[in-house]
Each structure stands twice: as C-alpha cells, then as structure tokens.
C-alpha cells in the first residue's frame, strides 16, 4: 500500500496515514472476499518484481526508487491479472489514504465526521 501511494507533490503518502491501524481495522471488519483478496494481492505484490521489472527480489528488498518504478509498471502491466493485483493494492491504499484528515485537508475537503457504526437494535 505504501509503495502504491507515497508522499509526493505536497500530498501525504499512505505511510503518513496510519496504515498499521488501517490494516488491523480492515482485517477485523472486511468481508472474507475483500480481506483474502487483499492478502493474496499483498503476496503477489511481493513476488512479482521478477516478472514486472526483471529484478529477482521480493518487493520489500527493492530500493525506494526501484520499488516506485515497480509499482508504476505493475499497475500498467499488459497482463490483466497483474493489473488486478495492482488494482486491489490501490483500492486498499486509497481507502486508507483518501479518508485521512491530512489528505483531505491537502485536497481542500473537510475532515470526515466519525463513523457511528450503529443501527436500530429494535
């Protein structure tokens, strides 16, 4: 997630948006299809540098510059399935990033109110 949306152009990156808390939260709340899709995409993201940029290392061992190039190439790859890996990673990254107060402030959007998470119990 952090590689997909790093800080740039005056905007915070995912790393500035409490990604650990986000992962903990979504792991508890997401439906199985979303959570396991994210897990699978996360593994695939780590394993695909050799296919996408020809570097036989997992993504977490790439230099920051190489990882950035890899993130871009992954999401514009000619293989549809590889692009879907990037899509899921960007979807999760976007949910974490776009709702964060610092990002919304940078985009001239008001901060979100708290989500009540409530419903009629009777």
């Amino acid at each position: 997630m952090e590689a997909m949306l790093p800080a740039e152009a005056g905007l915070p990156g995912v790393a500035d948006c409490a990604p650990d808390l986000f992962i903990t939260r979504i792991s508890k709340e997401a439906c199985g299809r979303l959570w396991w899709g994210m897990v699978a995409a996360g593994f695939a993201f780590q394993l695909l540098p050799v296919v996408v940029v020809g570097i036989p290392l997992p993504a977490f061992l790439l230099s920051a510059r190489a990882r950035d190039r890899y993130a871009f190439k992954l999401s514009t790859h000619r293989s549809y399935l590889i692009r879907q890996v990037a899509f899921i990673a960007k979807f999760a990254a976007g949910l974490c990033w776009g709702g964060h107060d610092s990002v919304r402030e940078a985009l001239a959007l008001p901060p979100y109110a708290t989500d009540p998470g409530t419903w009629r119990a009777s």
């Binding site: 590689a3 997909m4 949306l5 790093p6 800080a7 740039e8 152009a9 005056g10 905007l11 990156g13 990882r67 950035d68 190039r69 890899y70 993130a71 871009f72 992954l74 999401s75 514009t76 990037a86 899509f87 990673a89 960007k90 979807f91 990254a93 976007g94 949910l95 990033w97 776009g98 709702g99 990002v103 919304r104 985009l107 001239a108 959007l109």
Partner: peptide, 25 residues
Amino acid sequence: IPPEMVASRLAGGGAELTRRLSRYR
C-alpha cells in the same frame, strides 16, 4: 466520487499516481 475511489480508478502507481491525485480538485 471521493478521493478514496479515485485512487483505484486512475492508472499508474507509486509517486506518479500521487502526482495524478494531486489534481483531484
């Protein structure tokens, strides 16, 4: 659509994607 959804709708990833999102407004 909110920025959360625009992130996955735009092509690209990494710093280039953040640059693209910086034009959200």
